[in-house]
């Protein structure tokens, strides 16, 4: 059952990733941040590896269907980093808890049964 839910989320995340590809095209030189997700009973948790970046150089933009992480790395070599985290229907980007520890940005998006799949 869980793998069925995960497969459905994977598909939806893939669809939203394609839908919001324009964000990536806006910054063609950006390096894509490595991100992984886990579905939990309480919501969807994204983990983004933001290595060699100071916290003040990270911006997390919350949009209804997608969360965009932008970061600037100045060391060891300068780079603009970009992460696109799709948020499928059933989760609410208005209810997000973000933590940055070590080199990982953790974004927890709570479930919202009222928000259906678009």
């Amino acid at each position: 059952m869980q793998s069925h839910v995960n497969a459905e989320l994977e598909r939806e995340i893939g669809r939203l990733r394609r839908r919001y590809a324009a964000i990536r095209r806006e910054s063609p030189d950006a390096q894509e941040l490595v991100a992984g997700w886990a579905a939990e009973a309480s919501g969807l948790r994204w983990y983004v590896v933001v290595a060699d970046v100071v916290e003040a150089d990270i911006d997390v933009e919350l949009m209804p269907e997608v969360i965009v992480v932008r970061a600037v790395r100045t060391w060891p070599e300068p780079a603009f980093l970009l992460g696109i985290l799709p948020v499928p229907g059933g989760f609410d980007t208005g209810q997000v808890v973000i933590r940055f520890s070590g080199e990982t940005l953790e974004v927890h998006v709570r479930r919202d049964p009222d928000r259906g799949t678009t």
Partner: peptide, 16 residues
Amino acid sequence: TAQPREDGQFFTVTRP
């Protein structure tokens, strides 16, 4: 845009 400094965080969070 806001910085959730009260939680000891320095990244910025941008919302609609």
